[in-house]
Design a binder for these strands. Structure first.
Length: 997
RNA sequence: GCUCGGAUGGUGGAAUUGGUAGACACGUUGGACUUAAAAUCCAAUGACCAUUGCGGUCGUGCGGGUUCAAGUCCCGCUCCGAGUACCA
């Protein structure tokens, strides 16, 4: 019987579902001692309308292999899946079509589930979560409230309840409290505190809460009436509609993640993540040690605060630069400079932050007319504004040291500002000297002269401290995270406003469900879409949502109109999976479950989440740990980033023929004709007779370009890869069917009538028509082939192009594997009982060697996440066993188990064929035995000056001297030496012989 | 710009601690089987030179270096990809 993958895969997918084979057990489900837990998680998908393409399952297949492997190793594996189902695309679609995002999301989820089910994953679907499900976001809202009710005690580096802070204020005021709070928080005593009104107190506390309201810069698009993601801005205008965008301040919820900066940084040391990813997070957090300086402003009460890592170069300061958005700009600009400054601010508001950071070539800035005072020399320092200084970065002010910083140097040179040199024997006329080597001595700096950086920094800080104008400071690049979105399709904030001050809805009334709106657009006056809801007010007496008309600011108050960002739901979902569906009403997850599962043992997902999701979920985990909700303070122990699978786009080339407006013609030319005529330097019509005939027929008397063929004569157009075969030939009729606009187009083909397309590797996306659907692959080759091929394609962590043609290789392998177990005769049709021809005789030593070699390599590979090489290893194994005509149970049973994490359907079928009942998934993994691999000789490469010339089989028992003797005696050695005496003979036993001379 | 990756035959890739570069596949070519095709099986396949055979030279993005020995280590570049704080 042939390998009938369709029947086999359907059969076992049904079996797994019916028997709940992959349902994880809770600790209380075990009669005796629970099995050790192992938690394997994928970054859950956003269910987009486009469905899955072959790139999406890559990580899921890898994690599935690992999860199945761990089951074979005796673990109670938790391998759940769910959906990050709030998000912008569903909302955009809703705006365009008027369909409720919940509805389209539901449809998309259904499709995702169908697609995922076909691939044979061992997911425990009984624990599915959806972030847009009110039962789920009830807890997202709950966490938000906990954050609101917490502050950060910097003394002990821990989040604590706000009530604790209030009692501190009541007893000792805030001067001794070492808490993370807003910069402008005033100092007060206990008695002052008690004299404050409730509103005043509330405002002060807001400065300490871990989530708080603050003015933040956003990308505002007046035409769309909404805030845009950087992603939605292309070349400075909105992607939708091409409207202008400018930055604007807006009151937003923020998360005080910066309080956790140090812990997020030091926590990395204990994580089993790739060094590069840790490095990325380290740089993102951006710890730097330096000094915070205060510059007095002449004729003004204001101070400019600036952070610097180089207080030792304080005497090199020749100006101060503020971000154009800096609060002080409007306050200090002189009337003469006002017009120019305002124009500059307006212009820079149009540039995105990313653009400003990336553009180092164009230097721009304006003098404010005001002067700061050098804290030590008391000399006036001109205050400039420049858009290379970012408002959200540090204090938004830079003490400019042009001799020591290249951007300051460029700025000073451009505006003719003096560049005082504070380095001994360093030429700074052309560029700044930014090296921090202690050997370079400071000069022209009064008491710092002759010191190296290391000595000068503390001395400079000391001097500034005495003046009250500076202190040592640790600065982090990590900024507080903006948490408001002006969108509809997200979690509503459980917040209403009394006198403009935020109040939390009581926990017991959660979830606060998303209201219905007529349109998903912002309101006419620029409020978020929730501003369109008719019932969006909170009745504090009956504790429910009521109509806006009832708002009386007495007992009924307006609700928050923003919603939460995508990362809210994804920051804690891993813990939700730990609890079973029926026990999720009262808690995030039960304490028993949280303690048993702890955190994720293996997390697989894309590296694009390196600084977003992976940092936010660490932050929330640490916070929830501080507040006693979670027993762990890191979410993901081990993390693997899978690389992107790229698509192979196909192009047809349109000949840019100028045949006049009344007779336009669409002509496509086969790629190889174009390439060959360019190469030959000839005109297309001189290519060959077939081509010439086709051209004359199409032109029908029209003029023809008479020059040599050039690539510029053609415009490439994407065509759908589904109408192109693996030999790059286009199905012309197929193309005309899916692209009716090409019905009348002409195609200049090769002699045999074939039309060749061009190929290029690009990101897989609908717009590039290069998407390959896993359903189609499962249909044609089966899920096991798809799984193996995705792994075989290359290293998990690397980006690699998809090429459907290669699938036949792994598919053939599965057929060979099948044959190994099931010989062709006698087939049932010929009267045979079973196809499986298994011998119970002991296996040959050769076969045992093959098997154990495979066990060793594959086990090692799984642990290293090197799945591509394990597929090769299986191929080699099956090739060898076929050669050996092995059909021994002793070999084939363990082989089926070995392969089952990779190709589970065929493995189940083979296991059944071997006479077992039940699933193979819990069968113990075969044990590797070294004794079968013992070698007594080695094929040594014999090289001369590092170049391998021939090989010799030598016993591994030989000593170095014996090897040298045998090798030197060999006539091939003598021939290579050609009479010369070797200078040196290097022998590494078991490895190599190298003769030098 | 900054940060983090990557580059090996016609293609995907292998070479895990510096030790036989190109495993395993795809593709291509030739052969067997077949009326034919498909399927299957066998053989060849880095480039160049030489060839009856033996063989030789070059070769892991580019330029240097360390070493008996470098795809692997060091220094300096080039090109490509990802992230860059409201895509998910």
């Amino acid at each position: 019987m042939a390998y009938d993958f369709k029947a086999i895969e359907q059969k076992w997918q049904k079996y797994w579902a019916e028997h709940q084979t992959f349902r994880a057990k809770q600790p209380q489900d075990f009669e005796g001692e629970p099995k050790p837990p192992f938690y394997v998680l994928d970054m859950f998908p956003y269910p987009s309308g486009a469905g899955l393409h072959v790139g999406h399952p890559l990580g899921y297949i890898a994690s599935d292999i690992y999860a199945r492997f761990k089951r074979h190793k005796g673990f109670n594996v938790l391998h759940p899946q769910g959906y990050d189902s709030f998000g912008l695309p569903a909302e955009q679609y809703a705006i365009q079509t008027g369909q409720h995002p919940a509805k389209t999301t539901e449809t998309n989820i259904k499709r995702y589930r169908e697609q995922l089910d076909k691939i044979g994953f061992s997911f425990d679907w009984s624990r599915e979560v959806r972030t847009s499900d009110p039962k789920y976001y009830k807890w997202t809202q709950w966490i938000f409230i906990q954050l609101f009710e917490s502050w950060y005690d910097a003394e002990v580096q821990k989040s604590k309840a706000i009530s604790e802070l209030i009692s501190l204020f009541e007893t000792e005021g805030n001067s001794k409290v070492n808490a993370v709070c807003d910069q402008n928080t005033p100092e007060f005593s206990a008695s002052e505190w008690s004299s404050f009104s409730e509103d005043q107190k509330e405002k002060i506390i807001l400065n300490y809460r871990l989530t708080y309201l603050a003015e933040t810069e956003v990308n505002w698009c007046p035409a769309l009436g909404t805030v845009l993601a950087n992603d939605e801005i292309v070349n400075g205008v909105s992607e939708r509609g091409g409207h202008p965008v400018s930055r604007k301040k807006m009151k937003q919820w923020s998360m005080r993640i910066s309080a956790f900066a140090e812990r997020l940084l030091s926590g990395l040391d204990n994580l089993d993540w790739s060094e590069s990813l840790k490095e990325t997070q380290k740089n993102w957090i951006g710890k730097s040690v330096g000094a915070q300086l205060k510059f007095k402003i002449q004729n003004s009460k204001f101070l400019i605060e600036a952070f610097t890592t180089r207080p030792d170069t304080i005497y090199g300061v020749s100006f101060v630069t503020l971000a154009p958005e800096h609060d002080l700009v409007s306050k200090i600009t002189t009337s003469e400079q006002k017009e120019e400054v305002e124009a500059y601010i307006k212009a820079s508001a149009k540039r995105s932050e990313r653009e400003r950071m990336a553009d180092v070539k164009s230097i721009s800035g304006v003098f404010t007319g005001a002067y700061a005072e050098h804290p030590l020399t008391k000399e006036p320092l001109p205050i400039w504004i420049g858009d290379y200084v970012l408002a959200g970065y540090g204090t938004g002010a830079v003490m400019a040291v042009p001799c020591g910083d290249q951007r300051d140097h460029d700025f000073a040179k451009h505006f003719n500002i003096p560049i005082p040199n504070v380095f001994e024997d360093v030429d700074i006329s052309e560029e700044a000297y930014a090296d921090k080597t202690n050997a370079t001595k400071i000069a022209n700096s009064d008491f710092l002269n002759g010191l190296g950086v290391l000595e000068a920094i503390p001395k400079a800080i000391e001097a500034l401290q005495k003046l009250g104008q500076g202190e040592k400071k640790v600065n982090y690049r990590l900024r507080d995270a903006v948490f408001s979105r002006q969108r509809y399709w997200g979690e509503p904030f459980p917040v209403y406003y009394v006198n403009g001050l935020p109040k939390m809805i009581d926990e017991q009334h959660l979830p606060l469900e998303l209201p219905e709106v007529e349109k998903y657009l912002p309101t006419e006056d620029g409020a978020p879409p929730l501003g369109r809801a008719r019932d969006w007010a909170w009745d504090t007496e009956s504790n429910k949502v009521v109509s806006n008309e009832k708002i009386d600011h007495n007992t009924i108050f307006p609700l928050e109109l923003n919603t939460m960002p995508g990362w809210a739901g994804s920051s804690w979902y891993l813990f939700r999976y730990m609890e079973e569906q029926n026990n999720r009403d009262q808690l995030i997850a039960s304490n028993e479950a949280l303690k048993y599962w702890n955190n994720v043992d293996l997390y697989i997902g894309g590296s694009e989440h390196a600084t977003g999701h992976l940092l936010y979920s660490r932050f929330w985990t640490k916070f929830l740990n501080d507040r006693g909700v979670l027993p762990v303070d890191e979410p993901f122990k081990k993390l693997i980033n899978q690389g992107m699978i790229l698509g192979e786009s196909a192009f047809v080339y349109r000949w840019n023929l100028n045949t006049g407006e009344d007779n336009p013609k669409t002509v496509f030319v086969s790629k190889s004709i174009i390439d060959n005529s360019i190469k030959a330097g000839i005109n297309l019509i001189d290519y060959n007779e077939t081509v010439a005939d086709q051209v004359y027929k199409i032109l029908d008397g029209d003029q023809l370009i008479s020059s040599k063929t050039q690539i510029s004569h053609f415009s490439p157009l994407h065509v759908d890869v589904s109408v192109v075969n693996t030999s790059n030939q286009l199905d012309i009729e197929g193309l005309k069917n899916i692209k009716p606009e090409f019905k009348e187009a002409h195609f200049i083909t090769e002699e045999e009538g074939e039309f060749i397309v061009g190929r290029e590797v690009e990101k897989m996306s609908k717009s590039k028509f290069n998407v390959v659907n896993p359903d189609d692959v499962c249909e044609e080759y089966g899920a096991d082939s798809l799984r193996l091929y995705e792994m075989f394609l290359g290293p998990l962590e690397q980006a690699k192009p998809w090429n459907t043609a290669g699938l036949s290789g792994v598919h053939n392998f599965l057929k060979k594997l099948w044959k190994l177990y099931s010989q062709a005769s006698p087939s049932p049709s010929q009267g045979g009982e079973s196809d499986f021809q298994i011998s119970d005789e002991p296996a040959s030593t050769e076969s045992l060697k093959t098997l154990h070699k495979t066990i060793k390599k594959v086990t090692q590979d799984i642990e290293d996440f090197s799945f591509n090489t394990s597929v090769s290893t299986f191929m080699i194994c099956v090739n060898e066993l076929t050669q050996q005509k092995c059909n021994s149970r002793e070999i084939l049973e363990p082989l089926a188990v070995l392969i089952s994490p990779y190709a589970p359907h065929i493995a189940e079928e083979l296991w059944e064929g071997l006479g077992h009942s039940g699933s193979i998934s819990e069968v113990l993994y075969p044990k590797f035995e070294e004794k079968y691999l013992k070698e007594d000789s080695k094929t040594y490469p014999i090289s001369f000056n590092g170049k391998m010339r021939f090989t010799m089989d030598l016993s591994l028992d030989l000593s170095k001297d014996e090897i040298e003797y045998i090798v030197m005696k060999d006539e091939r050695t003598q021939k290579q030496l050609d009479g010369r005496t070797p200078k040196k003979v290097i022998i590494v036993p078991g490895k190599i012989v190298n003769i030098v001379g």
